[in-house]
Simulated scan of single mutants.
Amino acid sequence: MSQPQEPLGTFITFEGIDGSGKSTQARLLAEHLRAAGYDVVLTREPGGSPGAEEIRALVLQGDPDRWSAETEILLFTAARRDHLERTINPALTAGKVVICDRFADSTRMYQGLSRGDLRATVDQLHSLMIGREPDLTVLIDMDPDTGHARAKSRQTAEERFEDFGTDLQAQMRAGFLALASEFPDRFRIVDGGRAIETVATDVNRTVAGHLSSFG
């Protein structure tokens, strides 16, 4: 596997259960940083590159039992590798701020934890094929019932994981909080159960502290 150039930019990810508001907060942060003069790339997973967007349609649509957890891990890793090669690494090498709505932590949770004891498999594939973690991960914490209701109210075609129900969301919330304890140097937890503007203020403050140390 070819090694990318040493990145010059900074890589920020947003994580959280479905309906937590992380996508909105990622977008608001991108707007805030652009207004402050930063060169920002806002992207998402699964997706973020043409090939990865094609895989997104495969994994987020259809019946809940469409794929096994093992197959999902392979699909998500393939999408992430293409995303890394075509979008993330080039932007970081150019010194940009990359903001990504979900990354490997979501795979650690949704496939590695919730659908079987496959966390080690996720981490092995990640080490082999991806080989990097975000510089900062903002976890938008949300009550599972509230998040699930919000997610279902969107009524999009991409509701395969929402269809697993609130039990999955409760398990995912606990898992994300455990991940934040496992990786305290890069995780920051923000309470998502407040007004959007209030959450955004906290996110901006959190990221500002990171960027000041980033330089």
Rank of each mutant, 00 (worst) to 15 (best):
V122F: 10
P4G: 06
I99P: 10
A208E: 09
M1Q: 06
L179N: 04
T87Q: 02
G9I: 07
T198F: 09
V98D: 00
P64G: 14
L128D: 05
L177E: 14
L75S: 01
V207I: 13
D163P: 09
G209D: 08
R108K: 12
V199M: 09
T206F: 01
A78P: 03
T198I: 14
F76T: 04
V190W: 03
V97M: 03
E6L: 09
G9F: 00
S153Q: 15
E6T: 13
G116N: 07
L136D: 11
V190Q: 06
Y38S: 14
S49T: 07
M172N: 07
P64Q: 08
A180N: 01
K152M: 14
G112R: 00
T198D: 15
S153K: 09
S114Y: 12
E159D: 15
P90Q: 08
I130N: 13
V207R: 00
G147T: 10
Q155Y: 02
S68T: 13
P134Y: 10
Q124L: 05
A178T: 07
G209K: 13
A79C: 07
H210K: 00
L168W: 15
D135A: 00
P50H: 06
L8I: 04
F214A: 15
L74R: 03
F14Y: 06
A94Q: 15
L28D: 05
N89M: 10
I12P: 10
A151N: 08
E158N: 14
A94V: 02
E182K: 14
Q5G: 13
D65M: 13
M142C: 15
G62H: 09
S213M: 11
D141V: 10
G175M: 06
Q169A: 11
L177S: 04
E54Q: 11
F183Q: 10
D135V: 00
L128E: 07
D101V: 08
G116H: 01
P46S: 08
D135F: 03
A200F: 05
F76S: 02
G131D: 00
Q61D: 14
T77Q: 14
A94T: 04
R81L: 10
V59W: 05
V97S: 02
V97K: 04
R186E: 05
A35V: 02
R80T: 12
T43N: 07
Q124Y: 11
G209F: 04
I130M: 10
A36E: 13
H148R: 09
F164Q: 08
G16Y: 06
V203I: 12
V203D: 03
F214N: 11
E53S: 07
E70W: 10
R86V: 06
I196E: 05
A79H: 02
A178H: 12
A200D: 10
